[in-house]
Nucleic acid binder design. Structure first.
Lengths: 287, 287
DNA sequence: ACCGAAATGTAGTTTTATTACCTAATTAAG
DNA sequence: CTTAATTAGGTAATAAAACTACATTTCGGT
């Protein structure tokens, strides 16, 4: 049930199932996880008010080989910065707290996504995109910005890409699609009706339909190629903050994949574009 | 000179300055950093073909208190996944390699940004934004997509925000600006001339000018409030991949900051917007 | 209240890391 | 070219940390 890779969350999730001394150890660790990674088993035992073997047992209970191994895992978990038990921003968070939380959440989302990379789907998607005569990126709301970004990036790679955020335009383009067109739909939930309808339209043509969206969604169902993104309900409660970042990086991956497929010839092209931008600069710099 | 917080990069950077046995240790670690975090000092010493104290000395040379502390630091560095010495994508990278690299780069950029959060500037920026009568987000190129995203996010928070990506529109709006207007410029380099010009125009009005951009840039110079973002030259060589992600998260921070400043009243508003979106869904779900 | 099972602690053993010291290598001066 | 000085590196002893086996306690059930 709990596939969470973060030790801290695992521990706090398991809290109710722990017995007395284990709870003490868990408390001591959660009280100051950073310190726990630095202390020896003796210090932590004193800190928790239990004996050393209890700490050791605790470690093994959470899948570690022993205390040192446990510390290592803990250190890893901490990097993602998820040291705030409730990772959601609280109303009374100060300016020195909530920015870090937001960064931590984003980093955690990326780490998670990195662990569940749909490699096969990405490869197939690159196949589609690399051969495309023309690529359309469609998204609404937050995903519109993602689509715009994708257009820009693919364009730089000399791929004929266009982003449309107007449902009517999307409809028209999907209806008139033909062989060689690739439609890439971006939707966090895959349940935004206008987007799904356009995808269905596109599917009826000769065009290829791909989607960056949630698994088992209506949008996923109508797509030839789906790049699944997991939805983390809790952090994206009111605003899709982390999900769109993952989408963006996945589009980076696709663009890079297409570029790699084309091989070396691309680099001079990028250099040329970069040069053309220099004219708009007051000084030397990359974009 | 080297403020790099990543142990691995630190080690490989220091390679030329190391003596014989230190080099052996460094090689052994770089050969398989993951394994190094798991092995004991004895194993690593054998692996490197040196004695245990040599390994210990090596650890201290890199600022650790001893071998266990060193392992901990190493483990931390590895999480960012920067285990690829050359983090740049190579032409012969397979589909199981380059996506991870891209994610790693992005995560590394966020970790770096998190460590150098311009807290004071963020707080001031929230002051400006929270009091704004109207907010304009201006960006060009890749930053245009960021601006569009910002517009969307602030709008959801019931803040009158608009994004413009057309330089002419930007000019007109800047020229006609007045008290209560806040202009937020987004530019990776801060040297894109059209943007700087518009910022100068806006500065001449009664409006507040803020920027998410590089320090010591022309754009930073004309802004009342600058949120500095560091530019990592190597990974963003040809395309600004990681920098725009950092910008996006910084805008998340600003939007959240404004929301927090307003306090609880906001939550029902968000819930209402969420409900209004449900109508466009084929099923229940968050955006 | 007593028995048994689970939980926790104690003490001893083993492993791991550190320190102090010694030897070999290297370099610069005579 | 030798030799003294200095540094690098290794050996072995010491100290620290972690683990194991076993003893004791605690708790739930009868």
């Amino acid at each position: 049930m709990n596939t969470d890779s973060n030790l801290l969350t695992q521990i706090s999730a398991a809290l109710p199932t722990l017995n007395k001394s284990e709870t003490k150890v868990a408390d001591a660790i959660l009280r100051n996880p950073e310190a726990a990674t630095r202390s020896s088993i003796a210090v932590l035992a004193t800190d928790a008010g239990v004996s050393e073997p209890s700490v050791n047992r605790f470690c093994k209970r959470f899948g570690a080989n022993g205390f040192p191994d446990f510390k290592l895992r803990l250190a890893r978990s901490l990097v993602a910065g998820v040291k705030y038990m409730s990772r959601a921003v609280e109303l009374d968070d100060g300016v020195d707290v909530y920015p870090k939380k937001l960064f931590d959440n984003t980093i955690a989302a990326l780490l998670l996504a990195k662990e569940h990379l749909p490699t096969a789907a990405l490869d197939r998607a690159v196949d589609y995109l690399a051969q495309a005569r023309r690529i359309y990126f469609f998204g609404l709301g937050t995903s519109a910005a993602v689509a715009a970004d994708a257009e820009h990036k693919f364009f730089r790679f000399n791929v004929p890409a266009m982003a449309y955020t107007d449902p009517l335009m999307q409809r028209m383009l999907a209806a008139g699609a033909g062989v060689g067109d690739v439609f890439c739909f971006i939707s966090h939930t895959g349940r935004t009706r206008p987007i799904v309808e356009v995808a269905e339209l596109a599917k009826q043509s000769e065009a290829a339909v791909m989607a960056i969206t949630a698994p088992n969604s209506p949008l996923a169902a109508v797509s030839h190629c789906v790049i699944e993104t997991r939805v983390s309900e809790d952090t994206d409660a009111y605003l899709p903050m982390t999900s769109r970042i993952v989408q963006l990086v996945l589009l980076d991956v696709l663009a890079t994949g297409v570029a790699l497929r084309r091989g070396e010839r691309l680099l001079p092209h990028l250099a040329r574009i970069k040069d053309s931008l220099k004219a708009t600069r007051t000084d030397e710099a990359s974009n």
